[in-house]
């Protein structure tokens, strides 16, 4: 393992720890962006260049920004809210996640893999024939899923009636709820 590799993996795990421990939701989302950028670098190093750039554009650029937008929209930056119904459940959660890690690591332990496949740098020229060949049905299904998700996202946040169809008192109430 080269020192750069070790540094990248350390940074990856450190930013992951920040994501799950930081109290402020905005800071956690920013740590997640850092995590994704490091991950994109790792993808490029692992001969998945197209995926690395998609990771930056879609994940760091679109998904996390959507998260930040919703956090700021709902004034939900404070991470510790509400009551804690299970007091001191944190050590239990730690134990459980360590258990998950051990199960996954034990699965990987005896594996004897030869990382010698020629991936052609993971460029679109190499991925395209697969995407539009063997994976065509999957691609179409994912496209349909994205369309359904768009419709659902619009339908979910629709008010029960459009705002201009409400009577003045109702409109006042609606505004109070939405802030």
């Amino acid at each position: 393992m080269s020192p750069w590799e070790a540094l990248a993996l350390l940074l990856l795990l450190f930013s992951g720890v920040l994501v799950v421990t930081l109290k402020n939701a905005i800071h956690a989302a920013l740590a997640l962006i850092g995590n994704f950028l490091i991950l994109a670098g790792l993808y490029v190093a692992l001969e998945a260049r197209f995926l690395g750039f998609i990771q930056i554009i879609v994940y760091a650029g679109a998904i996390v920004v959507l998260f930040l937008f919703v956090i700021m929209l709902l004034y939900a930056a404070q991470g510790e809210v509400g009551f804690d119904p299970l007091v001191r459940s944190r050590p239990l959660a730690l134990l459980l996640s360590v258990g998950v890690a051990l199960v996954l690591l034990s699965g990987l332990w005896g594996l004897n893999l030869a990382f010698t496949k020629d991936l052609q740098g993971g460029l679109p020229q190499a991925l395209g024939p697969l995407l539009y060949g063997d994976w065509l049905l999957v691609l179409l299904a994912v496209g349909f899923l994205l369309m359904a998700a768009t419709v659902v996202a619009v339908a979910l946040v629709q008010p029960p009636r459009p705002l201009d169809a409400l009577s003045p008192e109702e409109r006042k109430e609606e505004k109070e709820v939405v802030r």
């Binding site: 692992l46 001969e47 998945a48 197209f50 995926l51 998609i54 990771q55 879609v58 994940y59 679109a62 998904i63 959507l66 998260f67 919703v70 893999l113 030869a114 990382f115 010698t116 496949k117 991936l119 052609q120 993971g122 190499a126 991925l127 697969l130 995407l131 063997d134 994976w135 999957v138 691609l139 994912v142 899923l145 994205l146 359904a148 998700a149 768009t150 659902v152 996202a153 619009v154 979910l156 946040v157």
Partner: peptide
């Protein structure tokens, strides 16, 4: 994917697309 071939990378691409759909619905 480095041991078994490019299919792994295509699957990762699909996971990213599905994650985008999931985030849209979840945040909604």
């Amino acid at each position: 994917a480095r041991a078994y071939g490019l299919e792994g990378q295509v699957a990762a691409l699909m996971v990213i697309a599905i994650a985008a759909a999931e985030v849209a619905v979840g945040l909604g």
